[in-house]
Nucleic acid binder design. Sequence first.
DNA 1: AGGTAACCATACCGGTCTGTATACTCGCAG
DNA 2: CTGCGAGTATACAGACCGGTATGGTTACCT
Lengths: 189, 189
Amino acid sequence: MDDIHWTPTAERILLVASELFYARGIRAVGVDTIAEAAQTTKKTLYDRFGSKDRLVAAYLERREERWQAFLLDYLERRPVDDRILAVFDAMYEWRERDARRGCSVINAGAEITNPNHPARRLLAPQKLWLRDLFVELAERMGLRDPRLLADQLLLIHEGALVSSSVIELDTTMDAARAAVRTLIAAHRR
Amino acid sequence: MDDIHWTPTAERILLVASELFYARGIRAVGVDTIAEAAQTTKKTLYDRFGSKDRLVAAYLERREERWQAFLLDYLERRPVDDRILAVFDAMYEWRERDARRGCSVINAGAEITNPNHPARRLLAPQKLWLRDLFVELAERMGLRDPRLLADQLLLIHEGALVSSSVIELDTTMDAARAAVRTLIAAHRR
DNA sequence: AGGTAACCATACCGGTCTGTATACTCGCAG
DNA sequence: CTGCGAGTATACAGACCGGTATGGTTACCT
């Protein structure tokens, strides 16, 4: 998907665009605003990205890359048997630091209805990546029916991410962790 | 919140606005479009609702009322001990019939960032209503720690609703039901 | 020396956005 | 019969939208 020429200015544009899109919503941020905040011009923005839609796609792609890298790094430092729970610890830390407005993928899904939007096709794979990771972790722990467990864990993950931004209930993370422990226990042979 | 004068035309406006907001997103639908689709004029729309923001608030309020009525009616026909699982059956049916684009509350949360928006204060209470319902159902079944269980069930509910619209994974509902059964079992004395 | 690529500055295009203004018709209640 | 409230029709304001056009300035590469 990277037919984009990544000059330093392009990186700067993407950086400020990401912050604005995430904080205010995609439709709420105009290209003029982005160009000005990135201290460049609309001309350069269009020379690099071609259209706003492609800039949006780049935003979602990069943000997901950052999250995946953060998560994998987080998991490496944990013993194999703790890693499923550690995913939720990582999510909590990620949320506190960089995701106070919930999940960028879900938020984008709410705004982008056009199925031909270049960002639309990115959404599902990003969630399926996490599902596959859960499958792998469950298999390594030797748990029963890893796929079913992975689907269940994904539900709790999505639910926790959404709830924490809409409801702002402080019991959310505790409930998520407790549910994960119960479900893992139920899948022990 | 109903300082709105509910004339027949106001009802018609709200009806078509609801369909458009839900299907295409709030920001993606202009008041001109709504007025035309409702076979009335912008003047009348503003006479009745005062602003687009208040129309949006009315949309979310009404949709939530419909969902709550649907759910309570659904639960009444089920034995007390089946009602927690029945919430997820109801959600599935609701989704198939009228919620293919996911949860209107979560979608609105993604689009509305301004904390002073008249619809913003509606979002959290609508989710807390379901949480309280879960608490009540868990208590009636005599389950341990009803509040923790309710928080967990809410997570799964939100997760299932979100996943089904973003990922469109056909295993979602089965995973949700299995997780609910496991969590209920873990809360039996 | 000449070419090329990145970028800046600015103006413009057609369209759409929320919201307002004006002036009219109709039906109904006092 | 008169006055009011609901609705129609239409035009307009002022801002903003995504996207394009023109032209100029650097800096580096051969």
